[in-house]
C-alpha cells in the first residue's frame, strides 16, 4: 500500500463511471457504437418481459377480488372485460385490517432503520484504523474479517438464541438490531476500508503536518470523503435487513413485533382463500425497498463494485 498507488487508480477493470452508473454513452463497451441488430433487441426484450411478467401478474392480482383471484388467471382481465371492470382496492384495505400489515410495516421500519444506521460509524472507525494506522496484528485482524465474509450467519444462531434466552431478550427489537449489527460488521468494515484505501494519502499526511489528531482527521476529512461508500453500505444493509426472514423468525418471531417478511410468510401459509391478500401484502412489502433501490441505485452499484471487485 504505497502512497503513489492511492492516487493513480489501481488496475481494476472498472472505469470510474460506467454508463450504467451515470454519464450515459461516454464510453461504449465491447460493441461498436449504435450498432444494435434487430435480433439483439428482440432477445433482450424477451428477457426483460420474462423478468417483469411474474411481478406484473402479482400486481394485477392484488387488485382482484377473492373470487376472481382464485378462480381465473390474472391474464384474463385482458381477455374478459368483465374481469377487468371488477378490479378493486379491497385487498389493500383488508390486508391492513385482517393481516395487520400496518403494524408489521411499522415494525419493519423499527427493525431496519437502527440496524442500518448504528453499524456505520462503528465500521467507519475500524476501517479508519485499518487504513491509516500502523499496529501489530493489523493484517491478521483484517484477514479474519475477510474470512468472516464467507461464514454463513446460521453458524451463530443456536448460541445466540441461548444467550438471549438467559437474558430474556428473545422477541425484542434490540435482539435483532444487535444481531444485524454483528452480522453486517465484516462486510461494512471490508467495503469501507477498501474505499478508504483509495483516498489520496497526501491529504492525510498534510493534515498530520498541520497538527491534526487522528480523531480530528477522521471526523473532518475521512468521514466526509467516504460518504459515497457509507451510503452504499447503508443501502445494502437496509435492503438486507428489510428483506431478511431468517433472523426475524429466529430473534423476533411471529406476534406483535413481527416485521413484514413474517406477516407475508403467514399469508403464504394460508392455502387458497388468502391468496388475494398475499398479493397485496407482497406488493406492499416491496414498495419501500424498491423506492430505496430506484432512488439510490447509483450508490448501490458503486458500492457493489467497490465492495465486491475492490475499488
Amino acid at each position: 500500500m504505497s502512497g503513489t498507488q492511492a492516487v493513480t487508480p489501481t488496475p481494476v477493470q472498472l472505469p470510474k463511471e460506467t454508463p450504467y452508473a451515470g454519464k450515459a454513452g461516454r464510453r461504449r463497451g465491447v460493441a461498436e457504437v449504435g450498432k444494435s441488430p434487430l435480433w439483439v433487441r428482440i432477445v433482450l426484450a424477451l428477457i426483460c418481459i420474462a423478468w417483469v411478467v411474474p411481478t406484473f401478474g402479482l400486481a394485477i392480482t392484488s387488485f382482484r377480488g377473492q373470487e376472481d383471484a382464485t378462480t381465473s388467471g390474472w391474464w384474463t382481465i385482458f381477455t374478459t372485460p368483465a374481469n377487468f371492470t371488477r378490479l378493486t382496492f379491497e385487498n389493500y384495505s383488508e390486508v391492513f385490517t385482517r393481516a395487520n400489515m400496518g403494524e408489521a410495516f411499522v415494525n419493519s421500519l423499527a427493525i431496519t432503520i437502527p440496524a442500518t444506521i448504528i453499524p456505520i460509524l462503528i465500521a467507519a472507525f475500524a476501517a479508519y484504523a485499518f487504513t491509516f494506522m500502523q499496529f501489530p496484528g493489523r493484517d491478521l485482524l483484517l484477514i479474519v474479517i475477510v474470512g468472516l465474509l464467507v461464514v454463513p450467519t446460521q453458524v451463530a444462531l443456536v448460541p445466540l438464541l441461548k444467550i438471549y434466552g438467559t437474558l430474556g431478550m428473545n422477541g425484542t427489537f434490540p435482539a435483532v438490531w444487535l444481531a444485524h449489527v454483528g452480522f453486517g460488521m465484516p462486510l461494512a468494515v471490508y467495503i469501507i476500508r477498501n474505499y478508504m484505501a483509495t483516498l489520496p494519502r497526501e491529504v492525510i499526511e498534510s493534515a498530520k503536518i498541520d497538527g491534526a489528531s487522528h480523531f480530528q482527521t477522521f471526523w473532518k476529512l475521512i468521514l466526509p470523503m467516504s460518504t459515497p461508500v457509507l451510503a452504499s453500505f447503508a443501502i445494502f444493509q437496509f435492503l438486507w435487513v428489510w428483506n431478511d426472514l431468517l433472523n426475524a423468525l429466529v430473534f423476533v418471531g411471529p406476534g406483535n413485533n413481527q416485521p413484514l417478511t413474517i406477516a407475508l410468510v403467514q399469508l403464504l401459509g394460508q392455502q387458497g382463500q388468502g391468496w388475494q391478500l398475499l398479493t397485496a401484502g407482497g406488493l406492499f412489502t416491496m414498495i419501500v425497498p424498491i423506492l430505496v433501490f430506484l432512488s439510490l441505485q447509483r450508490y448501490f452499484v458503486r458500492g457493489m463494485t467497490a465492495g465486491a471487485v475492490k475499488g
Binding site: W51, T261, V265, L268, M286, P289, I290, F293, L294
Partner: peptide, 8 residues
C-alpha cells in the same frame, strides 16, 4: 428483483 427480496 435484487430489491424485492426472497419472501416477496
Amino acid at each position: 428483483p435484487m430489491a424485492i427480496g426472497a419472501v416477496s
